[in-house]
Nucleic acid binder design. Structure first.
Lengths: 201, 201
DNA sequence: TACGAATGTGACCCTAGGGTCAACTTTCGA
DNA sequence: TCGAAAGTTGACCCTAGGGTCACATTCGTA
């Protein structure tokens, strides 16, 4: 990442983009455990170049995660004023799942404390989802006992469960999102046995 | 594992148990990525001993997973004749989550093809869950469009989402199981957008 | 164009972790 | 009791992968 005091040299700026793009593709294809070597090969640069641009592999991940979550926050903020609050929340969850980067959330929640960029973004996401959840609750679109933390945690389940299949249909996550979202609805909701976790996201 | 043609020598039998027990504890504590060294240290034996008892680390995992899934199958088969089919399915899912070994399922589904022990167990689990699901559907306890594969996939979500939290309450998974199970109920169910995957478990 | 600073390069280092093996020790039956 | 088969041991091998660094290259400017 690095916030350059002076602008990057032209070749450096290009390589930075190449690395980011390559990393995104590789992560998508092989999950968060791709090797730096794979990324570097795809980008067409040498390993040393990678570490000139990113302090570590985790630093790269933080950069990408920050970008994705940032995009997600934009979506959420856009939806804050929607007329149909229930549809807005579902829309948000759909976009989140469609991004397909379920490791985002895991990284967001794990590595958050140690990385300033990520922890700031995390707070913003939480705040924005809170608004969507509150709106949906007020509108009677979801049960009253569900919190933003619940939603953020459940957000990644559709993509995750699908990964258990050897070759899942690319839109299968929609099926499980639909089921889980039905579970969030007030109709026929049963008492939840355990209180929500602290919002200590 | 090895199916001993002749019975194990007494010390070998003891070490086998020690390894299995140690592995179970280590997996529980550190997830499926514990090193063989950690397991071996806890068991109090040398590394070489490990590999006399198990052909590979995956072999050990297969042994443990087989054991867990076997126990789960027993539970499922016990519940097949229950009067309240809906409660029986919920009960099954509760036991599955309480086992807390969500990697079981992932291993079961991934490594299944390459391991005879696991693939046999996998089929039995699928069959038994099918019965529970069919019973529950017939009883009107779950929506009609949900399959055994759906249930098996969703089975591990409660434990998984909870893992995103730095220190989740030990019973928090019950909250998410309740939400997801409500999503499986027929009351207020919305049309699912994508067909179920092939039952090619 | 020429020079210094910024950047790129890839050989190299280090560690972790799975797996092997020849020598040593224990078990157990005759 | 004793010897062979079964089991144990830990030093060793190998690979993958993250990260470093001295040197080569390129950019941008005077």
């Amino acid at each position: 990442m690095m916030t350059p005091d002076r602008p990057l040299r032209s070749d450096a700026a290009r390589n930075h983009e190449l690395l980011l793009d390559a990393a995104e593709i590789e992560f998508e294809a092989k999950g968060p455990d791709v090797s730096v070597l794979d990324i570097v090969r795809r980008a067409g640069v040498a390993k040393g170049t990678f570490f000139r641009h990113f302090a570590s592999k985790d630093d790269l991940i933080a950069a990408i995660v920050g970008k994705h979550i940032g995009a997600l926050i934009d979506v959420a903020e856009h939806l804050e004023g929607a007329e149909d609050a229930g549809a807005a929340l579902l829309q948000f969850l759909t976009v989140a799942s469609a991004q397909r980067e379920q490791y985002d959330v895991s990284f967001l929640l794990r590595a958050g404390e140690s990385d300033d960029r990520v922890s700031g973004v995390r707070t913003r996401l939480y705040d924005s989802v809170s608004v969507l959840v509150d709106n949906a609750r007020t509108a009677g679109a979801i049960r009253t006992d569900v919190t933003a933390t619940d939603v953020i945690l459940l957000m990644c389940a559709p993509n995750h469960v699908v990964e258990y299949l050897p070759s899942p249909a690319p839109d299968l996550w929609q099926r499980y999102l639909a089921i889980i979202f039905d579970g969030l609805r007030p109709a026929g909701a049963h008492q939840l046995p355990v209180p929500a976790p602290n919002d200590a996201l």
